[in-house]
Design a protein around this nucleic acid. Structure first.
Lengths: 193, 193
DNA sequence: ACAAACCGTTGACAAATGTCAACGGTTTTT
DNA sequence: AAAAACCGTTGACATTTGTCAACGGTTTGT
């Protein structure tokens, strides 16, 4: 169960974890299973856990006054589910995170993570590496969102994230891109010709 | 000149810098002045320096096929100008960064920064803190962009960043929000009533 | 001091995207 | 096996936003 996590960590650090470090990590991360549609985080709650996805798929979204959901993130295996704003500032989250498929997670609290980072210096490095990749990905997405038409955004997304296209239904992809499912449907029809 | 930087750093770490550490920082960061419109980074170049803005205002933008500029970031005092993707991956940048006002910077290369982080552990902490704030801010902006109408985005932006409203002309704010200057002009007219 | 560039606004119109309602074909639940 | 929920598509139409051209009032450069 923890093997994926250890592999993931080792891929993001310079020299591999010692077996003591691995044991400590395995002892700290708690397995958690979520059934499809089950909440990992509900709007209004403080996000207590970060979850590494071992198997499954999840989504993070806000709900506006009209009840419309806006997908801000999609997660699959080897992604981290977490509302950073809430978990670091200890404020109520504006988002929901739930399981789109039956999902297996390894969860950890912020305090536990800080403690682990003290004991395992390589983890600090891993977090930095994650932050970096994350910052770059967000920058790209932002840039694409303000610069491109819906059509180009979809094309870019499909090219960079084919796994997501296969894994999530179109109306979620549409919402993720900031457009309606009808618009995405028409864009795809257009593109086929 | 370096005082702002030291103050900034001290605000983002737990215990203050020692005077040796401060001296090392002062010795490493190079002052640089940019005249209005001068480039800090040009599209196609690799971003070699990160720049801490001591005084002035800058912008980061891409230029599309039609020659239209898309503002992805606006910077003023105490902000860092940098294309992270380019400087960490050593790839040619897709962006331009230039001075909107005459600007004074303190610049540092990535290698120098890594070296400083080795010698001054508190800097690692500062970077983490910056990354965290940055990630949160990006998340908010992204969420706002995909969930809200242009009008709401402008209102949110104006509420959260009054300094920028005063400092940059409307057509840059419009571009930053992903709309045209005409649309922003009409939105503001609407809102006044 | 003059010309040029810049900036915000407006009008007329075009294009992109959203809304609402309906449909048929799945898949899921009971 | 039947009912319900889900999913993508389509049509008709409304709304939002973009495009282009023009204007007058700045500010900037020389």
């Amino acid at each position: 169960m923890h093997k994926n996590l250890l592999t993931y960590i080792n891929q993001h650090i310079a020299s591999p974890l010692t077996s003591e470090e691995e044991a400590l990590i395995v002892a700290t991360f708690q397995p958690k299973k979520l059934r499809k549609k089950q909440y990992f985080l509900q709007e209004g709650d403080v996000c207590k856990y970060a979850g590494f996805i071992v198997k499954g798929a999840m989504r993070q979204y806000s709900v506006d006054e009209k009840g419309t959901e806006h997908i801000v993130h999609l997660f699959i295996e080897n992604y981290w589910a977490n509302d950073r704003e809430s978990s670091t500032m200890l404020t109520p989250s504006k988002y929901n995170i739930d399981a789109w498929e039956d999902t297996e997670l390894l969860i950890i609290t912020r305090a536990e993570m800080l403690d682990l980072m003290d004991k395992i210096p390589a983890l600090v490095q891993m977090i930095r590496s994650m932050d970096e990749r994350n910052a770059i990905a967000n920058q790209r997405r932002l840039s694409s969102t303000i610069s491109n038409t819906a059509e180009k955004r979809y094309e870019e997304f499909a090219a960079h994230h084919p796994q997501f296209i296969q894994r999530f239904p179109q109306h979620l992809i549409a919402s993720f891109l900031g457009i309606t499912k009808e618009t995405l449907s028409r864009i795809r029809k257009q593109t086929l010709k």
